[in-house]
């Protein structure tokens, strides 16, 4: 998802007998759906895993501004431009909600930004694909935000209070994102043959990377099992991917577009769509830094940070001057 393949640092799931009294009390609270709040006792592995997961999620929101930001200056109408600006600004907001949730676990904002800017931190594979046409903006809102919603809605119930509250805020804003994307797709699908072809081309390019967003199957993963026990992961990757396919295929049909998967077929027995195999080699390549835009995304991010330095320094100088003046007045 926005946080794909988060490691927990554990090698097996502890039984209640193996746990220390503190660990057992903690797990009992999680089992009883009592939220864990900052400064309360928590296992070190829970804290570290959450920092990893929340910061990956935050970095994804921040990097995720780039593919869409690419089209702000070229949006087809002033209205579309205003909408896209608002959407991209929301994503910045999501990043900020999540960074502040991560900070409650004892990591500093600077450390998190350093991890992002140095290329050490991971963010979702999906944002390493290019936005070649205006239809890609439609496809991102519809598919990418759609996939994100699928993951974020259950996370509103996660065990860590600040993360859960950030998710509630984010989910409230996401549905606008998905609807504006689908709205773009509807317009193009009902447009000229060229416009419809553009929409189809965007679907062709974004479909499989969107399915990859959920991450490889984690049915056997001890990390996922542990995260689910801690209730910082609610559904398995395969479960969410299936849900996404089931929900999205009818929406593609409504647009009169074809999902680029020859194996896609309704399975009446299962009550779900069957779909073809995801190319996980491509996914691992993108995660390893070899996607079409990895280098560009990081370069843009670092450049924005460097070029913003004088603004931060000016704000600092102004704050220091005002504080000094206030001191003189008080004296």
């Amino acid at each position: 998802m926005y946080a794909q393949m988060v490691k927990t640092g554990v090698d097996h799931i502890q039984s209640k007998e193996e746990m220390s009294p503190e660990e057992r009390a903690f797990q009992d609270r999680v089992d009883a759906d009592i939220k864990i709040e900052p400064k309360e006792w928590m296992p070190e592995a829970y804290r570290k895993t959450l920092i990893r997961q929340i910061s990956q999620h935050a970095h994804s929101e921040i990097i995720g501004m780039q593919p869409e930001g690419n089209w702000i200056t070229r949006a087809p109408t002033l209205e579309r431009k205003a909408i896209l600006l608002a959407k991209v600004q929301d994503e910045a907001g999501h990043g900020l909600y999540l960074y502040c949730a991560a900070e409650t676990l004892g990591v500093s904002r600077d450390e998190l930004l350093e991890q992002l800017n140095s290329g050490k931190a991971k963010y979702s594979s999906i944002f390493n694909y290019p936005t070649l046409t205006w239809a890609d903006i439609g496809a991102i809102g519809w598919l990418v935000d759609g996939a994100a919603i699928m993951n974020q809605v259950p996370l509103q119930r996660c065990s860590y209070g600040p993360y859960s509250r950030a998710m509630v805020r984010i989910c409230k804003e996401e549905s606008f994102h998905q609807r504006q994307g689908y709205d773009i797709m509807m317009k193009l699908a009902k447009g000229t043959p060229e416009q419809k072809a553009m929409a189809q081309d965007a679907l062709n390019r974004w479909w499989w990377p969107s399915l990859m967003m959920f991450g490889p199957s984690d049915a056997e993963s001890v990390h996922s099992a542990q995260s689910m026990r801690w209730k910082i992961k609610i559904n398995s990757n395969d479960e969410l991917r299936q849900k996404f396919v089931d929900q999205t295929v009818p929406q593609a049909e409504y647009l009169g577009l074809t999902v680029p998967d020859p194996d896609l077929k309704w399975n009446a027995e299962r009550g779900h769509y069957d779909f073809g195999a995801v190319n996980w080699d491509e996914f691992y390549q993108v995660v390893a830094g070899n996607g079409p835009c990895n280098r560009q995304r990081l370069r843009t991010r670092v450049k924005a940070y460097e070029e913003g330095r004088w603004v931060r320094e000016a704000a600092d100088a102004y704050a220091a001057k005002k504080a000094a003046r206030a001191q003189v007045k008080a004296a």
């Binding site: 608002a86 600004q89 907001g93 900070e103 805020r169 102004y318």
Partner: peptide, 22 residues
Amino acid sequence: VGSLHAPDAEMAIMNARDVYTR
């Protein structure tokens, strides 16, 4: 509603407006 970083109170209020009251 949450937290944010800012150099002073004035900027904190401006940032809070953008982050938490869109």
